[in-house]
Nucleic acid binder design. Structure first.
Length: 352
DNA sequence: AAATCGGGGCA
DNA sequence: TGCCCAGATTT
C-alpha cells in the first residue's frame, strides 16, 4: 500500500480521470450552478441517475432558476414531478425557492447551517450543496459514501461511518471528493459484486483485505410489506366538440388528493379506501351504473403493496354525480398522474 | 427510534 | 421477484 498518499488524494486523482459527465455537474475543479446542484440533489433522493437525467433537463428548461421556480404555480410543479415519487420533495422545492427569494435575495445560502434550515434539505442535501456548489468542507454521507467508507474501515453503524468519513474528507475540493465517492460507489464499489480490481482504494480497504466486502454496510433486518386492496372508479362522460358539430369528446373524472399523506397534492383517479381485503364496489360514488372489470392494477409502495380493481361507468354530461375535474381522455398524459393511476388509465385504454 | 413517503433499475 | 437507492419529515 502507498501509505504516503491519502485516500482523498488517490480518489481525487481517479475522479479527475473517470468523473461522469452529468447535466447538473461541472467538470472536476469547476464550481457548478447552486440551483442546479440543489435541484439535482433533491431529485436524486431515493431516485436513480438514469431516471433523473431527462426529468432534470425538462425541469430546468421550464424553471431555469430560483426566481422562476418561486413564481411557479404549485399545481404545475406537482404535475411536472409526476412519476418521480415522494411528492413532498416537489412541494418543498417550491417552499424553499420562495424562502430563498424572501430571505436570501434569490441566491442559495452558502453555509451548511443556512441550507439545512430550508424545507426539504436534511443533513445530506445541505452538506452536498455546501460542498459541491460552494466549495465548503462538508462531510457528505449518502448510501454510496456509507458503503464505501464502511468497507474501507469495516465500520459498522452510522456513528462509526460518520467518524471515518470525517477523517478522510479533505479541506480542499470537498465537493469533488463527495462526487468522487458517489461515482466510485456507483461504478466500482457496488452493493453486490464490487469491482475491486478496478478500485483505486483497494489497497486501503479493510473489507477487501479480509475478503468480506459484501458484509458491509451492515443493514438492519427489514419487515414484511402488508398487502392492501381497493377500487379505482373510472367515471366517463361525452361532451360535444365545440369546433365540430355532432362530434363528441370523452372525459374522465379526476380528483385532487389531500395535500398531506400518500401521493399528497397529486391529481388522481377517484378510489375507495385501501383496506386489508378487496372491497369491490363498496363505497362507489352513488348514482352511476358501475361495472367491475376483470382486471387488477398492482403497485408497490415503500411499506405496503397495493392491488386496485377497476370499476367503470358512464354518466350524463351535466351530472353532478361527483366533485372533481373532467379531463379529456385523449390528453390524460398531460394530467400529471402518479404512476399507479397512469397504470390504471393505460389498462383501461387497452380494454376498450 | 420508528414510521411514513414512490418508483425504477437491476441481478 | 427481492434488493437497492445522490433522504426528509413526522410521530
Amino acid at each position: 500500500m502507498d501509505a504516503k498518499r491519502s485516500i482523498a488524494d488517490k480518489l481525487l486523482d481517479w475522479y479527475d480521470r473517470h468523473a461522469r459527465t452529468l447535466p447538473w455537474r461541472a467538470p472536476p475543479g469547476v464550481r457548478a450552478d447552486p440551483y442546479r446542484v440543489w435541484l439535482s440533489e433533491v431529485m436524486l433522493q431515493q431516485t436513480t441517475v438514469a431516471t433523473v437525467r431527462p426529468r432534470f433537463e425538462a425541469w430546468v428548461s421550464r424553471w431555469p432558476d430560483v426566481a422562476s421556480l418561486a413564481a411557479a404555480d404549485e399545481a404545475e410543479v406537482m404535475a411536472a414531478w409526476a412519476g418521480l415519487g415522494y411528492y413532498a420533495r416537489a412541494r418543498n422545492l417550491v417552499r424553499a425557492a420562495r424562502a430563498i427569494v424572501a430571505d436570501h435575495g434569490g441566491h442559495l445560502p452558502d453555509t451548511e447551517a443556512a441550507l439545512r434550515a430550508l424545507p426539504g434539505l436534511g443533513d445530506y442535501t445541505a452538506a452536498a450543496v455546501a460542498a459541491i456548489a460552494f466549495g465548503q468542507r462538508a462531510v457528505v454521507i449518502d448510501a454510496n459514501v456509507e458503503r464505501v467508507v464502511s468497507r474501507l474501515f469495516r465500520a459498522a453503524g452510522k456513528p462509526a461511518v460518520r467518524a471515518a468519513a470525517e477523517q478522510i474528507t479533505p479541506d480542499q475540493r470537498a465537493g469533488d471528493f463527495a462526487q468522487a465517492m458517489m461515482d466510485l460507489g456507483s461504478a466500482i464499489c457496488s452493493p453486490r459484486k464490487p469491482k475491486c480490481l478496478l478500485c483505486p482504494l483497494a489497497d486501503d480497504c479493510a473489507a477487501h483485505r479480509a475478503g468480506e466486502e459484501e458484509a458491509f454496510p451492515v443493514k438492519p433486518a427489514k419487515k414484511a410489506r402488508p398487502a392492501r386492496f381497493g377500487t379505482i372508479f373510472w367515471l366517463e362522460r361525452e361532451v360535444p366538440v365545440e369546433s365540430q358539430a355532432g362530434a363528441t369528446d370523452r372525459e374522465v373524472l379526476l380528483v385532487r388528493r389531500p395535500s398531506s399523506g400518500l401521493l399528497g397534492g397529486m391529481r388522481a383517479l377517484p378510489t375507495g379506501p385501501w383496506e386489508a381485503t378487496a372491497p369491490g364496489l363498496a363505497e362507489a360514488p352513488a348514482g352511476a351504473d358501475w361495472t367491475l372489470l376483470n382486471h387488477v392494477v398492482g403497485h408497490g409502495f415503500t411499506h405496503f403493496t397495493l392491488e386496485l380493481a377497476l370499476a367503470v361507468a358512464r354518466c350524463d354530461a351535466h351530472s353532478a354525480l361527483a366533485e372533481g375535474e373532467w379531463w379529456p381522455v385523449d390528453d390524460l398524459a398531460s394530467a400529471g398522474l402518479p404512476t399507479v393511476f397512469a397504470k390504471a388509465a393505460k389498462a383501461i385504454g387497452r380494454m376498450r
